[in-house]
Computed example of a mutant assay.
Amino acid sequence: MSREDKIVVGISIGDINGIGSEIILKTFEDSRMLEFCTPVIFASVKLMSFFKKHFETDINFHGIDKIEDLIPKKINVLNVWKEHVDIAFGEETPTGGEYAIKSLKAAVEALKNKKIDALVTAPINKSNIQSESFNFPGHTDYLAQELEGESLMLLVSENLRVGLLTDHVAVKDVVKNITRERIDKKINTIYHTLIEDFGIEMPKIAVLGINPHTGDNGVIGDEDDTLLRPALDNIRKNGKMVFGPYAADSFFGSGNYKNFDAIIASYHDQGLIPFKTLAFGKGVNFTAGLNRIRTSPDHGTAFDLAGKNSANYESFREAVFSAISIFETREEYQEISKNPLQTNRKRGFSKKK
Rank of each mutant, 00 (worst) to 15 (best):
1 M>Q: 05
3 R>P: 06
5 D>E: 15
8 V>D: 01
12 S>T: 09
17 N>S: 04
24 I>N: 00
25 L>N: 06
25 L>W: 04
36 F>Y: 15
36 F>I: 14
37 C>P: 01
43 A>K: 08
45 V>E: 13
46 K>M: 11
51 F>D: 05
57 T>V: 14
60 N>M: 12
61 F>G: 06
62 H>G: 03
69 D>T: 07
70 L>T: 05
71 I>V: 13
75 I>A: 03
75 I>G: 01
76 N>E: 08
80 V>P: 00
83 E>N: 09
83 E>L: 07
88 A>N: 13
88 A>I: 11
91 E>A: 10
94 P>A: 10
101 I>Q: 05
102 K>I: 05
103 S>Q: 13
106 A>V: 12
107 A>T: 02
110 A>C: 15
113 N>D: 12
120 V>S: 02
121 T>L: 03
123 P>Y: 00
125 N>R: 04
126 K>Q: 08
127 S>V: 15
131 S>Q: 09
131 S>E: 11
135 N>M: 06
139 H>N: 11
139 H>F: 09
148 E>C: 08
149 G>Y: 08
149 G>I: 07
150 E>P: 06
153 M>G: 06
153 M>L: 13
157 S>F: 06
159 N>Y: 10
161 R>Y: 03
162 V>T: 07
166 T>Y: 10
170 A>P: 08
171 V>A: 11
172 K>Q: 13
173 D>N: 09
173 D>L: 11
178 I>K: 01
184 D>S: 14
185 K>N: 15
185 K>E: 15
190 I>C: 04
192 H>F: 14
192 H>A: 11
196 E>L: 08
200 I>E: 01
201 E>M: 14
203 P>I: 02
207 V>Q: 05
208 L>M: 09
208 L>G: 10
216 D>F: 10
217 N>E: 15
217 N>Y: 14
223 E>C: 03
223 E>Y: 03
224 D>Q: 10
232 L>I: 11
238 N>L: 15
239 G>L: 09
242 V>N: 07
245 P>F: 10
248 A>C: 06
251 F>H: 05
251 F>L: 06
253 G>F: 13
260 F>I: 01
262 A>M: 06
265 A>Y: 05
267 Y>N: 01
270 Q>P: 08
270 Q>I: 05
274 P>S: 06
275 F>Y: 07
277 T>P: 06
279 A>K: 12
280 F>T: 02
284 V>N: 04
284 V>I: 02
289 G>A: 05
295 T>F: 04
298 D>I: 01
301 T>P: 02
303 F>P: 03
304 D>Y: 03
305 L>Q: 15
305 L>Y: 10
307 G>A: 07
307 G>W: 04
317 R>I: 03
318 E>A: 14
320 V>L: 04
322 S>Q: 13
326 I>N: 02
331 E>N: 13
335 E>C: 04
336 I>Q: 08
339 N>V: 08
340 P>Y: 13
344 N>K: 12
347 R>L: 11
352 K>M: 12
353 K>C: 05
